[in-house]
Write a protein that binds this DNA or RNA. Structure first.
Lengths: 243, 243
DNA sequence: CAGTGGTCTAGACCACTTT
DNA sequence: AAGTGGTCTAGACCACTGA
């Protein structure tokens, strides 16, 4: 039962999360850290690590001197903006069973801005393709991915585009996606985008404009994503800095 | 030199942050955790706590077995979406020296949706007022705040609206703002909003629609905020969940 | 294989809330 | 006064990286 990977902390976190959503805790009160530690046979530090993660993602809150409690409003959050890793997962979290349509895989030279963002020489070729995520033929997310061609060691075919982006980068570039730096930009959808998303032209939308970095902190992809706000809405918890 | 409050961890974090932005670390390499611990005379745990926070906010990155390094792209982030606490601070972080204009303080009954979000009976009175944040007479942020009237123990005058919202809630309601739950919504600005922000009607904008909760996890305020995207843009770091 | 970060333990003391 | 979460320590062992 006690194994490495996932870590003890992760196991404890998952265990507690299950009991929280299962309503195991009377009146929203979670047992004290010492009690949990002895019950689960781990150190208080491990318990505290797990609780800290649950607190950070909004599932619980803690009051010094008082106790630890279930956070009902925080439990409502389906997809936390800071933890989006693939849009398929997001859609599944919303109860959808998404399908993916991949556009033509093209090669384009990088403009000045893209080159700077991806640490390339201007004009270096990029592999570019669109992905459309649908729920029951209803488009929800439209993303455009741009990968520097010189990172691609295994040729990308149309079918490969269906993989989650992090998987594609591992299989075809040998890079492991570590994090995204994202700008959140308001836009009015143009002709092409509104057509793909099946909404009126100039519909307001959020655009995520982001650069993905690999394990060595090298930029590996520039992605732009547009959303159907009526089908997918993002939430987020904001706290005081340093808490 | 060694004092409680701010905690040792916070002090170590601030110390390291200073050295990072000051370029003290040769080739972006930060000394090992053990070395930092003996140098600063604290335990490795404290060092690790401080480094974890710096990693989380994007200032550094760590590679198991290799070391800890300065994260140049992460250092560029001015205002991290998850840590916004007052728009005045955000504007100051962008190098502005903001001023605030407060609209008329009104009382309105809560509609069904607002009542549900703030855990009120429909029709209960709300104190409502607009705040416009400007840089040199140039409007940047427009927010509308709605506070349940029954929470207000000290009357709110127009001048009080200039205070940061968390301060106002402490002074006039005895509540301490703990966190916001925020929806990110794309909108096209209407007549009133575009006028206040001095942009064309139907300009696309981000709208933050958020509920603020106090130390006891009770909803205390509903706020809606609109932004001049050309003057203020939000960034965010996205990582795999559970990392 | 030496050195790094990742995980976990056991225990101490403090600040705060509740009774 | 008793019990809670918050901070910090010292030390152990593991997994991984890079020379």
């Amino acid at each position: 039962m006690i194994t490495r990977n996932p870590s003890l902390t992760e196991q404890v976190k998952a265990h507690l999360k299950e009991r929280i959503v299962g309503g195991d805790f009377e009146a929203g009160r979670i047992p004290s850290e010492t009690e949990l530690a002895t019950d689960l046979g781990v150190s208080r530090t491990t318990i505290r690590d797990a609780l800290s993660r649950l607190e950070h993602e909004g599932s619980i809150y803690r009051k010094q001197g008082a106790g630890t409690f279930v956070n009902e409003p925080g439990l409502q959050i389906k997809s936390r903006l800071e933890e989006i890793w693939s849009y398929e997962e997001v859609l599944r979290d919303h109860g959808y069973t998404p399908s993916v349509r991949v556009g033509e895989i093209q090669t384009e030279p990088a403009g000045d801005q893209l080159a700077a963002e991806l640490k390339l020489e201007p004009g270096e070729p990029l592999v570019v393709f669109e992905k459309l995520f649908l729920e029951n033929d209803l488009p929800v997310v439209l993303t455009t991915n741009r990968i520097p061609k010189r990172l691609v060691s295994v040729h990308i075919k149309a079918a490969d585009g269906k993989k989650p982006l992090y998987e594609l980068l591992e299989d075809h570039c040998g890079r492991f996606l570590s994090y995204y730096l994202s700008d959140i930009v308001p836009v009015a959808l143009g002709n092409h985008e509104s057509g793909q998303l099946a909404v009126a032209r100039r519909t307001p939308s959020i655009s995520f404009e982001e650069v993905g970095f690999d394990q060595d902190n090298e930029p590996v992809v520039k992605a732009t994503s547009l959303f159907r706000d009526d089908l997918l809405r993002f939430r987020l918890i904001r706290r005081k800095a340093g808490a």
